[in-house]
Computed example of a mutant assay.
Amino acid sequence: MASKSSLTRQEAIQYVKEKLGFENIEDAALDLATLNEIQRRLMSEVPFQNVSLISMPPEKRFPTVEDVLADGLSLQGGACAHNNWFTCLLLRALGYDAYTIAAIYCSEIEMEDMHMMLIVKGVEDPDDPLQADPLFLVDVASGYPLPHPVPLHRLPVTFPETAGLELSFAKYGNMIHRLHHSRDPNPNEV
């Protein structure tokens, strides 16, 4: 179905129809509603998992484009480098202007550039139709899923509770932070 390093538009349409169940993709506009639907279906059908990653020797853990295509097309899924890179290739084949970015994930320790996400640009934002160059962050490979693309041009943005957490995105200096909040801590639990 796929060439060695990319997908054709027809292969992408076939994949979205057959594997993601999005029957009318051929007639869908390359707009935010379609992007949102593709993101939702990918998160539903292509699992974020790291079992296959940790079972590999360390020198083979960063995938090749062939690995990414095979894991995405087969619905095996994988970690962020697999799922988000695959999503980028899929969206490009469909006609979106998409590219991957490196991110820093902080939990208890900071580890540089250990998460991959993607940016989609040029999609009109119905909530801000006068925005000249809208940017949307897409992440289909996180244990804390996003309910839809994040409009980076409208920060700060807060999502309602998703997977038990309230998610917020805000700009601090030259960095964009993703913040999780579940509830105020109980002083007796600390």
Rank of each mutant, 00 (worst) to 15 (best):
7 L>K: 01
8 T>H: 09
9 R>C: 01
9 R>N: 02
9 R>P: 00
9 R>D: 00
9 R>Y: 02
9 R>E: 00
9 R>A: 01
9 R>G: 01
10 Q>Y: 06
10 Q>A: 12
10 Q>E: 15
10 Q>L: 10
11 E>C: 06
11 E>V: 03
11 E>T: 07
11 E>Y: 02
12 A>M: 09
13 I>Y: 06
13 I>Q: 13
14 Q>V: 08
16 V>T: 10
17 K>N: 06
18 E>R: 11
18 E>C: 08
19 K>N: 12
19 K>R: 13
20 L>G: 05
20 L>E: 05
22 F>D: 05
22 F>P: 00
22 F>S: 01
22 F>N: 01
23 E>R: 12
24 N>R: 14
24 N>L: 10
25 I>N: 02
25 I>R: 02
25 I>Y: 07
25 I>E: 05
26 E>M: 05
26 E>P: 02
27 D>T: 10
27 D>K: 12
28 A>R: 12
28 A>M: 08
28 A>Q: 08
29 A>H: 04
33 A>I: 00
34 T>K: 05
35 L>T: 02
37 E>L: 02
37 E>P: 01
37 E>A: 09
38 I>F: 00
38 I>P: 01
38 I>Q: 01
38 I>L: 07
39 Q>C: 11
40 R>D: 03
41 R>E: 04
41 R>D: 00
41 R>W: 04
41 R>H: 07
42 L>K: 04
43 M>F: 01
43 M>K: 03
43 M>G: 00
44 S>T: 06
44 S>M: 07
45 E>A: 13
45 E>R: 14
45 E>K: 15
45 E>N: 11
45 E>F: 04
46 V>I: 15
46 V>Q: 14
47 P>R: 09
47 P>N: 12
47 P>D: 12
48 F>M: 10
48 F>Y: 15
48 F>H: 13
48 F>W: 10
48 F>P: 06
49 Q>A: 12
49 Q>P: 05
49 Q>G: 09
50 N>L: 09
50 N>S: 14
51 V>N: 14
52 S>L: 14
53 L>E: 08
53 L>R: 11
54 I>T: 07
55 S>V: 07
55 S>N: 14
56 M>E: 15
59 E>W: 07
59 E>Y: 09
60 K>E: 15
60 K>F: 09
61 R>H: 04
61 R>N: 05
61 R>G: 05
62 F>K: 07
62 F>D: 09
63 P>I: 11
64 T>C: 00
64 T>F: 01
66 E>F: 02
66 E>I: 00
67 D>V: 05
67 D>G: 07
69 L>E: 13
70 A>I: 12
70 A>L: 14
71 D>W: 04
71 D>P: 00
71 D>A: 15
72 G>F: 10
73 L>M: 15
73 L>V: 15
74 S>V: 13
74 S>Q: 13
